[in-house]
Design a protein around this nucleic acid. Structure first.
Lengths: 214, 214
DNA sequence: ACCTGAACACCGTTCAAGT
DNA sequence: ACCTGAACACCGTTCAAGT
């Protein structure tokens, strides 16, 4: 993208640039678009140059997740009671994961979700602290809330993940079910997607109510 | 494993055999061990033979998940009240996912979790029906419970997934955190793993209590 | 119907070599 | 210090060909 290519030296690249480009690649094309070769081509550089800057694909992915993680941490929390603020934060984890679904899915695939969510977990810990929930109770409350959010994300991501041999979405699966021990109205309802945001809200509220007292 | 190899014909293989072998491969070595070439070698057959029987890797994975899914459905549900039976079933989803973590992780990776859990969801729907929770309320209750379980599984699987550049487990991540707006006892607690089964139990109970009345 | 080898278009990664 | 090409050891998949 810059100037003369391939002559042999000086591309003016640094690891930050590589990581940024990798992040852009994933945001645009999903996890499978992040190939060392594609990335190198994008940067107008030999494939092996990438390795010099970031070590390996795994390290690159960790760095990229860390970058997004920092950016996601810049939020302002609203709510009067500590409880409301905890809810607000949990909602933020949810919405920002949806806003960056490709990276979230990637983090999820490689088992680095906690890396992505650490700053948000930290903010959550602060609010829980303000609500008087500390120590082991604080940890348990935090973990329970984060798990709840993670569960909803798994479901939300099912809808877009690669269009696998149909049979992948719950609604389509339930369309093939007939069971006389289940009321027809239930089966009917299971064939349509739930109101995820509303369901998220009431489930989260139940968990928060359990773990953080008034 | 059988007899003369490579001469040219008759291996006595059928798609069921291929799927079974693939399942064994994943159970033993995780998702990354399932390679068309390795599978073929295991079966003493040319790589392309696999394709004749199962079409593609994606179809093979779907079939393998479907197979385990059926096997997981054979359970007996205990509990006196419908609520207890719902709890028992949710616990079963959790424990059987842990018992077959490699396949569960695979299903999770390719977004086929719902395929794996369909029979258990069906059983859950029946118990909810018996508890008088039907129609849209039934669907929402079912989804909320399943999401909750999914969230816990995400966390449980973090612990074993490939040993990525350290920085991957929450406890290790929290070991690097210092924040004077969080009580030291909380940070201390976050550096040790939670009692997952106990936490699962109380969180699940909160969700069930919210969605299925007595 | 069932199975084969050869070949294609990809991967991540290493390494000796250049400037 | 920064960048290169060649090469290695893998992938999934297709296809014409054998019996």
């Amino acid at each position: 993208m810059v100037d003369a290519k391939g002559t042999g030296h000086r591309a003016g690249l640094d690891s930050a640039g590589v990581i940024e480009a990798a992040l852009a690649l994933v945001e645009a094309g999903g996890a499978e678009a992040l190939t060392m070769r594609k990335l190198a081509a994008e940067l107008g550089v030999a494939t092996t140059t990438i390795y010099w800057h970031v070590g390996s694909r795994d390290e690159l992915i960790s760095a990229l997740i860390g970058l997004l993680s920092q950016r996601q941490a810049e939020i302002e929390i609203s709510g009067k009671t500590p409880r409301d603020r905890v809810m607000c934060l949990a909602r933020h984890v949810w919405t920002s994961a949806l806003a960056h679904r490709n990276v979230t899915a990637l983090a999820h695939q490689v088992g680095a979700t906690s890396l992505l969510e650490l700053p948000l977990e930290q903010a959550l810990a602060r609010e829980l602290d303000a609500a008087g929930v500390r120590g082991e109770a604080g940890r348990d409350a935090l973990r329970a809330i984060v798990m709840c959010v993670a569960g909803f994300l798994v479901v939300a991501f099912r809808s877009d993940g690669r269009a696998r041999a149909m049979q992948t979405q719950p609604q389509e699966l339930w369309a093939t079910v007939s069971d006389d021990r289940i009321d027809p109205s239930t089966i009917e309802a299971l064939r349509t997607p739930p109101d995820l945001p509303a369901l998220f809200e009431t489930t989260l509220r139940a968990v928060v109510d359990t773990f953080v007292p008034e």
